[in-house]
Computed example of a mutant assay.
Amino acid sequence: MNNPINDMGDHYEFMTKQLRSLRHFERCLFAVWCADRLLISHADHLIKKFSQSDLQTLQGVLDDIWDSLFNGMIPEKDQLNALDMDFMEVDDGWTDPMREIDPIRSIVQQSIGMCILCCRRNDVGVSQNVAQSVIDGLDCKLEKNDPGYTPETLFEHPQIQQELETQLAMIKNLKGEYELVPNLRTMFR
């Protein structure tokens, strides 16, 4: 990376610039790729926080978006409406005021909802927000598991640096020639 990223503002600015160079279709690919990675990387935690049917619904939403994208098109309005309906059925955890809200659960769920929105709107900010969700998920994980971690050093942490490089590699891949094949989904894991 040419520009150092020191804070969330730098990350937002850098990613927005990178994502502007992609077409809407590629931004959708990037967003669903980020959300898929986020869901998989926190799978062990999410199994404890979602019901099995809610987790299957979230995975199903991503699978359906991937299927459309692998067929070379952004999901159409009717399909997105159906995905929205499925997504809205997932318990968001806010209905019980006595239950503590789990940040990872919220981050993952929001990122999947943003993928639907990304397909609806040709908006760089939406795909950037999904990329930010991956960083937010790592931030939560580091805060919980790394005693030496502080929010001020977030972008100095090796896991964050690796994630930034991985996201940039995927963006560069989508700028060039790529094939719509299933291994695109697991690229750079």
Rank of each mutant, 00 (worst) to 15 (best):
L138A: 02
L55P: 05
M85W: 04
N6F: 15
D146N: 13
A82L: 14
L39E: 08
L83C: 03
A43E: 09
L22V: 13
K48R: 09
L29H: 06
D92K: 08
E143I: 04
N6T: 10
R20T: 14
N2C: 04
E143R: 12
G125I: 01
V130H: 07
P75T: 05
I171N: 00
T95W: 15
D136F: 09
V32F: 08
Q132I: 10
T153D: 12
P4V: 05
A35Q: 07
N183L: 03
S68R: 13
M15T: 11
M1P: 05
C119S: 12
R23V: 14
A131K: 01
D7C: 13
M73H: 13
I116C: 02
Q18I: 06
N3E: 15
I107V: 11
H42G: 01
N183K: 09
F25A: 13
R121G: 00
C34F: 06
L168C: 03
P182R: 03
Q110T: 13
K48D: 12
Q132C: 08
F50N: 02
T153K: 14
V108W: 10
T150Q: 14
E143W: 05
F155K: 04
T57K: 08
V90I: 14
H157A: 03
L138T: 10
G176I: 01
D86P: 05
R185V: 08
R27S: 06
L117R: 08
H45Y: 09
D92S: 12
E100I: 08
C118H: 01
K144M: 11
S51W: 08
M15L: 15
W66S: 07
P182A: 12
N122W: 03
C34A: 09
R185C: 01
R121L: 06
H45V: 05
K141D: 15
G137K: 10
R121D: 05
R189P: 00
L38S: 10
R120C: 03
Q128R: 11
E100V: 15
K141P: 07
N122L: 09
R37S: 11
L39N: 02
I5P: 06
Y178D: 00
I171H: 00
A31F: 04
W33R: 03
S53G: 05
E143Y: 04
R185T: 02
I107E: 01
H42M: 02
R120N: 06
I116D: 03
M85F: 05
E179C: 00
K175Q: 04
C119M: 05
D7Y: 03
Q110S: 15
D136H: 09
L142K: 12
K77G: 06
E165K: 10
E179Y: 00
V134A: 04
I101M: 09
L168E: 11
F70H: 06
L46K: 02
L22D: 08
L83T: 06
G93T: 05
F87Q: 10
L22F: 14
F188I: 00
E100H: 14
H45M: 01
R185M: 07
I160L: 07
I107Y: 01
N71K: 14
G72K: 06
Q52D: 12
G125E: 12
L19T: 01
